[in-house]
Amino acid sequence: MGLNSYDIKGKVVVVTGSSQGIGKGVAIGMAGEGAKVAINGRKTEKLRAVAREIEEAGGEVLPCPADLRDFEQVKAMMQRVKEHFGRIDVLINNAGGSFSHNLEDLSPNGFDAVVRNNLHQVFYCCSAVRPIMAEQGGGRIINISSVAGLRGTPGLGAYGAAKAGVINLTETLALEWASYNIAVNCIAPGIILTEGMEEVLASSEEAKRELERRIPLRRLGVPEDILNACLYLATEASSYVTGETIKVAGGGTGRF
């Protein structure tokens, strides 16, 4: 197995939540490696800006605005990608998000919203893409969880519970869908220096240094770190890997 095992050229890759942050970095990186990329988000203008960036670099991209909390919109999006590109080789479930919360102060509606944003839509996207991948003979699904899903994280209780659910869902889907030749794996990022995180840390260089001190590799992650893990799981290099979770956190424990 040589370096060509990491080749993604010509593959059709769907990246959810790709109008900003990790998803944006992964989508642009995949396009840069020659993949045909379908990008998704709820904010159309941000999505168009990412599409322009990919096109200007010579990449092939299909913007797919959709609310992934609505299963009918998810099914329509996957069908649109199939009709446009002819197939879907890789689905990267990146969309999600949260806010700082103590569980004692979190309302049931707030808990439901966090779980819906981080777990339900992963299941919706997997369910919608399965018939397409099964019909074409297989595919790859990469679910983005978090180190918060690997252990308790004060201030992120609902988020951590949802991301733990993503890990368990990944393992079960891998077992149930192996007969379709669909590999399902997971990535658990640590602290990634996205635009949003940069804004949070902009006012305190000391806070940034403290976060770096907690990480054995002594640096915060960047979207390219997640892209590299996605490339491995999306290509033939990982052809015998399914049901696994790769922590990409610089050796950090996950406690923010």
Rank of each mutant, 00 (worst) to 15 (best):
G2N: 12
N4Y: 06
N4G: 05
N4K: 00
K9M: 04
V12H: 08
V14R: 01
V15Q: 05
V15P: 15
T16L: 08
S19G: 12
S19L: 02
Q20H: 12
Q20E: 14
G23F: 13
K24Q: 15
A27L: 12
A31D: 09
E33A: 14
A35P: 05
N40K: 03
L47Y: 09
L47F: 12
A51I: 05
R52G: 01
R52W: 09
E55D: 02
E55V: 10
E56G: 01
A57C: 10
A57M: 08
G58V: 08
E60H: 05
V61F: 06
L62Y: 09
L62H: 03
A66Y: 07
D67S: 02
L68F: 12
F71K: 07
Q73W: 05
Q73D: 00
V74D: 03
K75P: 04
R80W: 02
E83K: 05
H84W: 11
I88F: 13
D89W: 15
V90W: 14
L91S: 11
N93A: 04
A95D: 09
G97H: 09
F99P: 08
S100N: 05
N102E: 06
E104A: 08
D105R: 14
S107Y: 07
S107Q: 04
P108C: 08
N109P: 07
G110H: 04
V114I: 15
H120C: 07
F123P: 00
P131K: 05
M133A: 09
M133T: 04
G138I: 02
I144Q: 02
S145M: 09
R151K: 13
G152E: 13
L156H: 13
G157F: 04
A158I: 08
G160S: 02
G160K: 10
A161T: 13
K163Q: 06
A164Q: 02
E171W: 07
T172N: 05
W177V: 03
Y180L: 06
Y180N: 13
I182R: 08
V184R: 10
N185D: 11
L193P: 03
E195D: 14
M197W: 15
M197F: 15
E198N: 06
V200Y: 13
V200L: 11
L201S: 11
A202L: 04
S204Q: 09
A207R: 14
K208S: 07
K208E: 12
R209V: 02
I215N: 11
R218Q: 13
D225S: 07
N228P: 03
L233A: 04
A234V: 00
E236C: 00
S239F: 06
Y240K: 00
V241Y: 01
E244S: 02
T245R: 00
I246E: 05
G251W: 11
G252V: 01
T253P: 04
T253I: 10
G254K: 10
R255F: 14
